[in-house]
């Protein structure tokens, strides 16, 4: 069985990635994880954590870090520098634009199903163009549920991710490298 290492900013990001891996690979796999609770710790510790994950049997590494308001090129370079030399190969640095919630916004039907909303949820045309996807998702769920459902990212992200279709996720350019990586290296 594949064992995949995931380093992310928080547990809910790990859960979303785990759900996506399951969708893409349709295989059983185990995971080892470290969460940074913010970007500073993740950057300073990611190399040591990946060494530990390797010792724990992880043969593939996924590092996830939201772009937030940063620059994609700068963040990618900085994270690659922090991770190098990475003890786990293959590895990938995934940077959702602007937040991982943008991927979830790509599938309006998944949001409706996962959050048990009876009204239609409108399609978001360009999820990665939304400056603050987390707040956007929260407001969308609140309004469409008639203010009856409270979205809490650490609880609900994984539920929406489980309901998301790959075709919808592919609408996000920052998602596609992860899918290609998984198809290539997790078999």
């Amino acid at each position: 069985m594949n064992r995949i290492g995931i380093i992310a900013e928080d547990d809910s990001d790990v859960d979303v990635i785990r759900s996506i891996i399951s969708k893409v690979t349709r295989r059983k796999f185990g995971i080892g994880k470290f969460v940074g609770h913010g970007c500073g710790k993740l950057r300073s510790k990611c190399r040591a954590w990946s060494g530990n994950l390797r010792k724990r049997g992880c043969r593939v590494l996924i590092l996830v870090h939201d772009l937030d308001s940063g620059d994609l090129g700068d963040l990618g370079t900085s994270l690659a520098g922090a991770l190098a030399p990475c003890p786990i190969n293959p590895n990938i640095i995934v940077i959702p634009v602007r937040e991982i919630e943008a991927w979830l916004l790509a599938d309006h039907e998944a949001i409706r199903k996962a959050m048990n909303i009876s009204k239609q949820v409108g399609k978001v045309s360009n999820p990665e163009g939304i400056p603050r996807p987390k707040e956007h998702l929260r407001d969308l769920i609140s309004v469409r549920s008639g203010h009856k459902i409270r979205y809490v990212n650490s609880i609900h992200n994984v539920k929406i991710a489980e309901a998301c279709s790959l075709s919808s996720l592919r609408r996000c350019s920052s998602f596609r490298p992860l899918e290609d990586f998984l198809r290539c290296h997790v078999r």
Binding site: G36, H37, G38, C39, G40, K41, R43, S44
Partner: peptide
């Protein structure tokens, strides 16, 4: 700078 590159607020 610390929060961006080194650690967390709690730490």
């Amino acid at each position: 700078v610390y929060l961006r590159t080194e650690g967390s607020l709690g730490e």
